[in-house]
Every structure is written in structure tokens, then in C-alpha cells.
């Protein structure tokens, strides 16, 4: 009998999930989008993805060896960061441009792993999503290279969002399938949704953040878009740019999103409003990455405001 009585401190609820298991799930869930990117943009996309993932993992390994810290490469988080960063890069055309984009990817990987993640204490301590931090670093530094989108045939064209911003019409069906210019991983809504369904089925993410994000973004576009109830315009905005990739894979990052249920909904609403604000009234056509890293900074405040009361406390006095 005495073997059954076990007194220990919290946590009392345990789960078999480990960090590496969850990260592997995210990695697998990103594969459909990656494969579609390779199909859409050709082998160059594969090269960029491989280089970025390798650079992130190598940077993490080298940094932790140099700093004499336990090496955490096996938890797959660096690989996920690398894959996410690669999916956020445009795929250029021509050998020299591809080499230069690979160099940028390596620079971005070092920035993501060393400055955004490791300097703040490694996985679990980073205050913003490393992949997005690196993307914004590259976007500010190499604006023209990061916003020149070419299809596999080498013709560089404007993204649907840029066309929308210029007041032209776009083909929404193409955007849902993904036959459009853009960054490697963001073009196909279908491929991203397949990955997202896998994550929800595996219980890695819930619909709270992406749901409240997309709904509040849709409402914002309906009110302020200036097109009234134009469903084509709304769908193009929902399917265009990095919104789907951001909502399902980057806004839901465990470390940089709130842990409270109420907080996650507040976070999603802030994300939706900021993205709408940046897209409709900002200087550039896209605003998802800035919206997400900006909201990452608000997470501690959101958590403080939405902290649930422990059972039995805070009743009437």
C-alpha cells in the first residue's frame, strides 16, 4: 500500500511529449509547403532550404560548443528555425543570385540562432521568433533582394498582394493552389493547410491563435479595406502573402505566444489588427512578419493581464 502514496511538488500532470517530438511534428508539417515550394520554384528552392537548415543547425552546434553549453541540436528546434527561415526567403533565378541568396540565408541563420535565440538563453528564453527576427533583419538590410520574386522561368513579377495594393484584380484560385510568385513556402494555401491539419491532429497547436488571428484580420479588412463586402478581395487577402504560413506556423510558436487560453485569443486579435493595419495602410504590401514579431514583444503583458485565478482565490470578500 505504501508504494501508492507519493508526495511530490508540481507538475502533477505529465505527458509523454518531448521538445524534440513536438519539433519533429512541426518539421513534418512544414514539408508539404516546402515540397510545393520546390515544385513551384525549381531545384534552387531545394538548395536554399538545405543551406538554411544546415546553417542553423551548424550555428547552434558551434555556438554551444564554444560557450561550453550542453549541445541541444538533437531537439530539432534549430532545424525548424532553419526551415521556417528558408520558407520565408524568396527564390531567385540565376546561379549568382542563388549563391548570394544562400549567403544571405547563412547570415540570417547566424542572426536567428546567435542573436535572437542563444544570447537570450536558448530555446524557451527567446523573446521573439528567431526565424522571423532573421527574416526582418534581412528584409531591412537587403530590401530589393528580399522583395524580388521570380517564378521558375526567371520572369520576376509582382506578388498578388502588391497587385492588390496597386488596385488591380488577382486570380484567387491560383493563390489557393499556389501558382503565384512569393517566398518559397508561403504560396500554397492548400499545402500549408495540410500541414496545419496534421499539427492540430497531433495536438501540437490549437485553433485558438490562428482562428482568432484570421477572423479578426478578415473583419479588419472588411471594415477598413474600402471594398465593402467584396469576397474576392477578402479571399485574396486571406490567401495572399505569408498570412497562412504565419498564422499556423509562426504565430503559434510555443515560446513566443501566450500560454493562457484567454491570452491566446487576445494575441490573435492583436495580430489580426496589426497585420491589417500594416497591409492596408503601411508602406509595403506585406505585414505579417512585422505584426508577429511586434506581438511577440507584447506577450509578457498579455500573459500578465490574462493570468487565471487559482481555484479558491479571489472570491467575494
Amino acid at each position: 500500500m505504501s508504494g501508492l502514496i507519493n508526495v511530490s511538488s508540481s507538475p502533477h500532470v505529465r505527458d509523454k511529449d518531448t521538445t524534440s517530438k513536438i519539433m519533429q511534428c512541426v518539421f513534418i508539417a512544414l514539408l508539404p509547403a516546402s515540397l510545393f515550394g520546390i515544385y513551384n520554384f525549381g531545384l534552387n528552392a531545394l538548395i536554399i532550404i538545405a543551406v538554411t537548415v544546415a546553417a542553423c543547425v551548424a550555428t547552434e552546434y558551434v555556438y554551444e560548443k564554444l560557450m561550453k553549453k550542453p549541445v541541444t541540436v538533437k531537439d530539432w528546434s534549430a532545424a525548424v528555425t532553419g526551415l521556417l527561415l528558408a520558407l520565408n526567403l524568396p527564390c531567385p533565378y540565376g546561379t549568382e543570385n542563388v549563391i548570394r541568396m544562400c549567403l544571405l540565408a547563412i547570415l540570417g541563420s547566424v542572426f536567428a540562432i546567435v542573436i535572437v535565440k542563444q544570447l537570450f538563453g536558448g530555446l524557451g528564453q527567446n523573446f521573439m521568433n528567431p526565424a522571423l527576427g532573421a527574416r526582418c533583419f534581412l528584409l531591412i538590410s537587403f530590401t530589393s533582394r528580399m522583395t524580388t520574386f521570380a517564378m521558375a522561368d526567371g520572369v520576376s513579377t509582382a506578388t498578388p498582394l502588391a497587385l492588390l495594393k496597386a488596385g488591380e484584380s488577382v486570380n484567387t484560385l491560383d493563390m489557393v493552389i499556389g501558382r503565384i510568385p512569393g517566398t518559397i513556402g508561403e504560396t500554397s494555401v492548400i499545402a500549408i493547410i495540410i500541414g496545419a491539419i496534421f499539427l492540430i491532429w497531433k495536438d501540437v497547436i490549437t485553433l485558438r491563435i490562428p482562428g482568432s488571428y484570421l477572423i479578426s484580420f478578415a473583419i479588419f479588412v472588411l471594415i477598413f479595406g474600402g471594398h465593402g463586402l467584396d469576397l474576392n478581395f477578402l479571399c485574396a487577402h486571406l490567401a495572399g502573402g505569408g498570412l497562412m504560413l504565419g498564422a499556423f506556423f509562426m504565430a503559434t510558436d510555443y515560446v513566443t505566444s501566450p500560454i493562457t487560453k484567454k491570452g491566446q485569443i487576445v494575441y490573435g486579435v492583436i495580430l489580426g489588427c496589426l497585420t491589417g493595419l500594416f497591409r492596408l495602410f503601411g508602406g509595403s504590401a506585406e505585414g505579417v512578419s512585422y505584426a508577429i514579431i511586434f506581438s511577440n514583444l507584447l506577450v509578457p503583458l498579455i500573459e500578465r493581464a490574462t493570468l487565471p485565478k487559482p481555484f479558491g482565490k479571489g472570491g467575494e470578500k
Partner: peptide, 14 residues
């Protein structure tokens, strides 16, 4: 290729 961010405000902090 110059890393433009370094002559902008974030570069100062970095």
C-alpha cells in the same frame, strides 16, 4: 553587399 540595417537605428543597438 552592404548590410543596410547597420546604418539604421537597430544597427546602433546591435
Amino acid at each position: 553587399e552592404p548590410i543596410t540595417i547597420f546604418i539604421l537605428a537597430p544597427g546602433a543597438f546591435l
